[in-house]
Design a binder for these strands. Structure first.
Lengths: 209, 209
DNA sequence: GAGTTTTCTGGACAGTTGTCAAGATCGACG
DNA sequence: CGTCGATCTTGACAACTGTCCAGAAAACTC
């Protein structure tokens, strides 16, 4: 029996089928991060795994099913990446530094993931099947940004001058530019990103005090 | 003889071949804006025009050639859309209002163009052939943003707290979120966009005075 | 109006794609 | 060992893709 539904069973211990799905998603992700959504064929994906191309349809009902599973899985983990920084910081500067450092690291290390994410998000305006997942992941990232920024404001003893969607869109704009620039010059892109976010962060606080 | 080169001859009066190229680009653009880069086949593009699919290769050397021509052509015009507003405004509020209004209008009216642009930009990290054009257009948009914002600051008698690439990335982040949200609810997307840009603009000025 | 060049058509080609299904292989259980 | 179900492989299918080309059609020249 093929496993088709993408259940939210994070509480259920992963059975054999679920583990296979993850394995396949992992391989698929390698290809997707390098080639993008449109240029990744199921055969190429399977070839980068230890399975044949037919097995994909045994565990996933669809190409879209596979890709949304990938994006959801990886980006969900991604949205928790700053939690430790938020918990550890005791001063605004400390939080900002940790935020910038982590951001710069993921820009380089998870380049494929970010490329795939911006690709899929752009595709979602053409393909309604992707829309729900994109909205969901975008919500996760917005919350992540908000956790960082509201803690930042709290440590600074100020209030935030923007709401959560605005804050996310602003920071994400900087990050996306860095992802694109990374394709040509990763080192410069990272340096520019951290510098630009560093100058932007204080602007998001009300001028209070 | 097929016309293959995309010359920068904006000074040269467009010959017959150049006019055909524009005609084809216009039809292609209709399809591209609806279906996106990957899902638009040359046959579909030709079917939405009054020509057969073979003629595309007579005027364009490549599918990439056609698409980059489209993006360059339309986005170049787009990058001049705020010039009138900048020239007319005499107060910061007036400039901001005009900027927001024009932005909201293009968000709705040129939805296809913006979708295609964000699609192509995302693809550029996977396809080096697109990179040069993406960088070029991104530069145009950055300059456009900078013209608006520096005039805004001038009228306000303040300085800008961010440089041009940062300013562009921030505003573009807001705009892209609006383009994505437009796919589900255009009216709400436009309202949110104008509200968010309105709250963001003042933050980009130094707190001076 | 004949001849020549430009422009366009429609079909053909080779390659790739997602999807599916018939059968091989495997593992557990009685 | 034999049976049965889950799991996997392999090959096939039909549709579609970008590209190219031989020849029709049109435009232009003399």
């Amino acid at each position: 029996m093929a496993v088709t539904a993408l259940e939210d069973g994070a509480t259920v211990p992963p059975g054999k089928a679920d583990r296979r799905r993850l394995e396949l998603a992992e391989s698929a992700f390698k290809t997707l991060g390098e080639m993008g959504y449109a240029r990744s064929s199921l055969r190429e994906i399977a070839q980068n795994s230890e399975f044949s191309h037919g097995v994909v349809h045994y565990y996933f009902s669809d190409k879209t099913d596979l890709i949304t599973f990938c994006v959801r899985h990886y980006k969900t983990a991604c949205s928790r990446r700053y939690d430790a920084v938020v918990d550890a910081a005791t001063t605004p500067a400390e939080l900002a530094d940790g935020f910038l450092a982590t951001m710069g690291t993921t820009l380089v290390e998870d380049a494929g993931l970010h490329r795939l994410w911006y690709d899929v998000r752009a595709q979602s305006v053409f393909e309604p099947a992707l829309r729900e997942d994109v909205v969901h992941v975008d919500g996760l990232l917005e919350q992540m940004t908000w956790r960082v920024l509201s803690r930042y404001a709290e440590l600074a003893g100020r209030a935030l001058a923007v709401d959560a969607p605005t804050a996310y869109a602003l920071v994400d704009g900087l990050f996306e530019q860095a992802v694109i620039a990374s394709a040509s010059d990763p080192t410069a892109a990272r340096a520019n990103l951290t510098a630009r976010v560093a100058t932007t962060l204080p602007l998001l606080l009300t001028p209070g005090r």
